[in-house]
Nucleic acid binder design. Sequence first.
RNA 1: GCCGAUGUAGCUCAGGGGUAGAGCGUUUCCUUGGUAAGGAAGAGGUCAGGGGUUCAAAUCCCCUCAUUGGCUCCA
Length: 647
Amino acid sequence: MSDQITITLPDGSKRSYEKGVSALDVASSISEGLARNVLAAKIDGEVKDAFRPIDEDVSLQLLTWSDDEGKSTMWHSSAHLMAEALEALYPGIKLGIGPSIENGFYYDIDFEGVDFDSDNLEIIEKKMLELAREKNAFIRKEISKSDAVAYYQEKGDEYKLELLEGLEDGSISFYEQGKFTDLCRGPHIPHTGYIKAVKILNVAGAYWRGDENRKQLTRLYAISFPKQKELKEHLEMLEQAKQRDHRKIGKELELFTFSERVGKGLPLWLPKGAILRERLEGFLKKSQLKAGYDQVVTPHIGAKDLYVTSGHYAKYGEDSFQPIHTPAEDEEFLLKPMNCPHHCEIYKSKPRSYKDLPVRYAEFGTVYRYEQSGELHGLTRVRGFTQDDAHIFCTQDQVKSEFGNVVDLVLYIFSSLGFKDFTAQVSLRDPEKPEKYIGKDEDWEKAEKAIEEVAEEKGLDYIIEYGEAAFYGPKLDFMVRDALGRKWQLGTVQVDYSLPDRFELEYIGRDNQKHRPVMIHRAPFGSMERFIAILIENCAGDFPLWLAPDQIAILPISEKYHDYAKGLYGELQEQDIRGFIDERDEKIGKKIRDAEVKKIPYMLIVGEKESADGAVSVRQHRVGDIGSMKKEEFVGFFHNKVADLLK
RNA sequence: GCCGAUGUAGCUCAGGGGUAGAGCGUUUCCUUGGUAAGGAAGAGGUCAGGGGUUCAAAUCCCCUCAUUGGCUCCA
C-alpha cells in the first residue's frame, strides 16, 4: 500500500502527495499567495474544510473569495464568529441556527432574560473583529450523539437539542474556534483571521423553524468581507439600490401615494402614475387583441355563493375581507378576490362548441385581498390591485399551444420593456403526495409535460420546483428581483382542472357529446401595481419613451418665446406627444436641471433662433444637447424612437 | 398577525423637559436669460393621534394608528 495519493486539479493536471495532505498544503505547494486565499475546498464535487486531511485519490478545486462556495463558507464561519461574540457579550443566550445566505449570513438567537440592545450593534461588530484578529483555527470534531446531547443539556440550549433529535449518531460534528463550540456539519474557513470586515445589517424576528406557532427568536443579519474596502463598496451598492426604490421614486415623480384615511395597502394613483398605467394597459390590450383575446368587464363584488362554488370561500373566506350584507334582503357579497369565477360565468352564458375553443377572456380586473398588515409593502404587496388577467378555455389538446402562446406574449411584453433579469419557475406536483391534487393523473401528466416542453422550447431560464403546483394544476411563474434583491413573482401561467369542474363548464365535441374544457389562468404583469413597482426599480424611473408620463418638456429661454412654445405644444399634442411647458420665471439652466431631475426623456429648448426657424433645440435626458431640428423633424425622430422600442 | 425600528413644514432631514429649525419646493417682487441650481421678501407645523408623569412634554412613560426591516402568509 502506497502512502502517496493522486490529486487531480480542475485543469486536469495530476499531482502526487503524501496521504493526509490537506487542500491548504496542496495550495502552498502551488503558491503561497494562493494558500493565503484558500477558504475551502471542493473535493470530488463536495465542499469541505481546506484543512481536512485527504486520504485517497480525489479531484480537488481550491475555493477562494471569488467562488460562490468560498464566499458562503466564509459567511458561515462568520456566523460562528458572530455567535462567539454574542456569547461573550451576552452570557446566557441560546442559539438557534446560523447559516450563510445569498448575501451574507444570519444567526437566530434567543435573548430571553438577557438584556440585548439592538441599537448598539457596533459593540458586536467590534467584538467580532477582535476575536477575528486572534486568528482562531476552526477545529472539527466528530462526536457521538449522546455526547452532543449531554453537551447541550449542560448548556441548556433546547434549540440545539431539538436539532440533534433529527440527526443520526455517527454523522454529528462540532466545530470549535476560540472559546466557542457549535453543532455544525461545516465546512469552515481555516481560521477567523480571514474575516477582516463585518457589518450587522439588520435585526428581525424569525420564528423557530419557520413555524409561526413557535417561539420567535431574534435574527441578526450580517455580512463579512476579507477586505475593508469590499465592505465599503457593498454598503455603497446598498445605498444606491435604495435610490431605485419604487416608493422613493414614486413619491419624487408623483406617480402614486397612500393615505391613512383611505386605508393601508390601498394605493392612490396620481395623474402621472395613471398615465403610465394606462399606457401599459393600452399596450397590453393591443398585444392581446392581436393574440386573439376578447376583452370583458366584470363587477368588483360577487355573491358569496360564487366563491363558495369556486372553492375560494372555503380556502380563504375566513381570513379575508368579510362578506358585505345588504340591509333589506340580507344578501351576502364578497369583494372580488379573483376574476376567474366571473369569467367562468361568462363562459357559461351560452353553449359552446369545440369549434369556439379556445375562448380567451381578458380583463384588467381589480381585486381585493386581505393581506396581513405586516406584509404590506409599497406597491408590491397591497390590498387592492388590478390584475392583467385572462382566462383561456380550451381542450386538453390545446393546452400546450395555448401555453406556448402565452409565454410568447409574456416574452414579447418583457422585451418591449427592456426586462432582462427574470427567471421562470415551473411548479409541478409533489410526487410523494398525489392526494393533494385534483384532476385526472393523465391530464396532469400531459399538462406538466407541456409546460416543461414549452419552457425548454422557448429557451427560458427556468427551474423546476416539485410540490409547488397549485392544488388545481401546474404553473409557470416569472420571477424578478427588486432593487434590494428581494424576489417577487410577476407573471404567471396556470393550468386549472378544478374550476371547470366546479362550475360544470362544458363544450360540445365533434362527437356531439359534452366535454369539460381546461382553463388556463394567465397574467403577464401579475398585477399592474407590482409590475410598475418592479419596472420603476429596473429603470430607476427612466421609463421607456413611450411610457414616460411626461415625454417632453418645452423650455423657453425667456418669456418672449412663450407664444412659440404654446404653438409647439399644441402641435406636439396633435401628434400624441405628451409633456408640458416650463413657463416659470427661471433661467434655462435651472429649467434643464429640474427637467433632468424629473427624468424627462427630451427637453425642447426654444429661444430666438428656434422661434425664427420653426425649430427646437433638443436635449436628451442623461445625454445632453443633441442638436437643433425642425419641429416636424423632431416629431418624426420621436415616433421613430418609440417604434424602435416596440419592435 | 408576530419580533424590532421609525413618525417634526408639501419633500429630505436636524433638534431632544423651558419662544419650533435648515435645505429644497411653494407665493410675491426684481431679473428676460442659450444647455444641471440668478437675487430678495413672505407664507407654511396641535412635532402621527390619545392618555399619563411634571410648575412645564415635540422631548420621558403607556396605548392606538401609520410606515418600515424581517418572519409567517400569498387564490
